[in-house]
Each structure stands twice: as structure tokens, then as C-alpha cells.
């Protein structure tokens, strides 16, 4: 796996490239609009990722330890949102839900769809990571008379989290890329701004090269962030492994 330093170098290079290009014509004219769009993309990705973690953890715990009806519900949620297209989910929430009397703001629909979609994949990650904690940890906590909840919270999840972080990083990047879909429900994200500018100026190469670099920079930033979180979460566990 690539070291955090080389990723940081790539991030710096792509940012430098964006900054360098943005001082020259014709890139300069597009830059403010694209930055605005990029900010929207980042906000959607952040809120969407947060929701994805919430949905993922909740669905995994419900599926593993919930009462039977809840287990089925979690199972259905995971299968439905993994098994159907994110674009159709987005349209369904945006165009169909209002027919049932529920009209949500475009931003809400965007983060909810992405959160639900990625959360369904995340649920399986959480489930696998919990399953990977050795059975002896459960047994030791039982012998210490902990409740199910105490075991999960204090013993199992802190260990499972370490194993979850790299696959979640992948999902966050998937989510970032999927944010481009929200341009189809009237949100002025990076992809939307790019198309809008392309239609008025026809500077396709310049615009989409810049947009590519901006997406790359955001995704590299996510990778770096996840590496830092991984380092912090595995402090106790990793310390010994090195010895």
C-alpha cells in the first residue's frame, strides 16, 4: 500500500497544478464557479459519509443483534440499497416521494440517497469487522459479567473499528464520485458547474481537466484523512504488533 507521504505529495502536486492553471486564461474565468461547485460537492460528500456511517453501523447492529423484525428490516434495507442503482434511488426520493406527500429539499435528498446507498455497503463492512474480533474477547467479557451492550461498546467495537477504517475509506471515495449524480436533481455541485460552463463556452478540455484534478485532490485528501484516523485508532493495537 502507498505510504501516507507519497499520497501527500500527489495531493500537493494536484493542488499546485490546479492553482497554477487557475492563474492562466482561459482557466481563470472558470475557477470561481468551479470552486463554488467543489465546495458543494465536499459538503454533500461529508454529510453523506456521516449518514452512511450512521446507517451502516445501525443496520449492522440491527442485523446482528436486533429482535427478529428489526433483523429483517436491516436485511431488506441492505439488499434493496445495494441491489438497485444509486441514480434510480436518487430519482425515486426526488421525484416519487413527493407523490406520497414527502417533499424534501434537493440537498437533503442528495445526502440521504448517498448515505443510504453507501451505508448499505458499509453495514456489511461493519458486520464483517465485528465478526473478525476473536471469540475469546466475547468470552472474556462474558466471564467479567458485562452486558451485551457493554461488550459491544467497550470491547468489541473499539477493536472492530480498526479493521473497518480502510474499507470505509474506499466507500467514502466511492461516495465522493457518486456525488456527481446529484447534479441531475438541480444541485450546483462540481459536475453541475462543469456542465453548465461547458455548455456556454465549449472549452471542454480545459474545464473537465480542471474538474478531474479537483475530484482527485478531494479523494486524496480523504485517503490521507483515513490514514490518520487509522493510525490514531490502532494506537494500542499497533504498538505491540511492531515489537
Amino acid at each position: 500500500m502507498m505510504g501516507i507521504r507519497s499520497i501527500a505529495v500527489m495531493l500537493a502536486a494536484s493542488l499546485a497544478l490546479v492553482a497554477g492553471l487557475s492563474t492562466t486564461e482561459p482557466f481563470r474565468t472558470f475557477m470561481p464557479g468551479l470552486i463554488e461547485g467543489a465546495w458543494m460537492t465536499v459538503r454533500i460528500a461529508l454529510v453523506g459519509s456521516l449518514l452512511a456511517v450512521l446507517f451502516g453501523v445501525a443496520a449492522a447492529l440491527a442485523r446482528l443483534y436486533g429482535p427478529l423484525p428489526l433483523r429483517w428490516l436491516a436485511r431488506a434495507y441492505i439488499e434493496i440499497f445495494r441491489g438497485t442503482s444509486a441514480l434510480v434511488q436518487l430519482f425515486w426520493l426526488f421525484f416519487v416521494l413527493p407523490d406520497f406527500g414527502i417533499s424534501l429539499a434537493p440537498f437533503t435528498v442528495a445526502v440521504l440517497t448517498l448515505g443510504l446507498n453507501v451505508g448499505a455497503y458499509g453495514a456489511e463492512i461493519v458486520r464483517a469487522a465485528i465478526g473478525a474480533v476473536p471469540r475469546g474477547q466475547w468470552e472474556a467479557s462474558t466471564a467479567l459479567n458485562m452486558t451485551r451492550g457493554q461488550m459491544l461498546r467497550r470491547i468489541i467495537l473499539p477493536q472492530a473499528v480498526v479493521a473497518m477504517i480502510p474499507p470505509w475509506g474506499n466507500l467514502f471515495i466511492e461516495l465522493l464520485k457518486a456525488t456527481a449524480l446529484v447534479s441531475l436533481i438541480t444541485i450546483s455541485d462540481l459536475a453541475f458547474k462543469a456542465q453548465e460552463m461547458n455548455q456556454t463556452t465549449f472549452k471542454t478540455i480545459d474545464i473537465f481537466t480542471l474538474v478531474l484534478l479537483i475530484y482527485l485532490a478531494i479523494s486524496l485528501a480523504i485517503t490521507i484523512g483515513m490514514r490518520l484516523i487509522e493510525g490514531a485508532a490502532s494506537r494500542g493495537l499497533a504498538r505491540g504488533r511492531a515489537h
Binding site: P134, G136, Q137, E139, A140, S141, L144, N145, M146, T147, Q150, R154, I155, P158, Q159, G236, L237, G240
Partner: peptide, 20 residues
């Protein structure tokens, strides 16, 4: 052994007395 790997020796011995 089944010690909790994410806790120091002291914390291993403090965990259940505190939570339970």
C-alpha cells in the same frame, strides 16, 4: 489469556469493575 488488546494491563483490570 483473552486480554483486551486495546487496553493497558491496568485498564484491563479496571474495565469490568467500573462498567459492571
Amino acid at each position: 489469556f483473552n486480554l483486551f488488546p486495546h487496553m493497558t494491563a491496568l485498564k484491563n483490570c479496571m474495565e469490568a469493575p467500573m462498567t459492571v
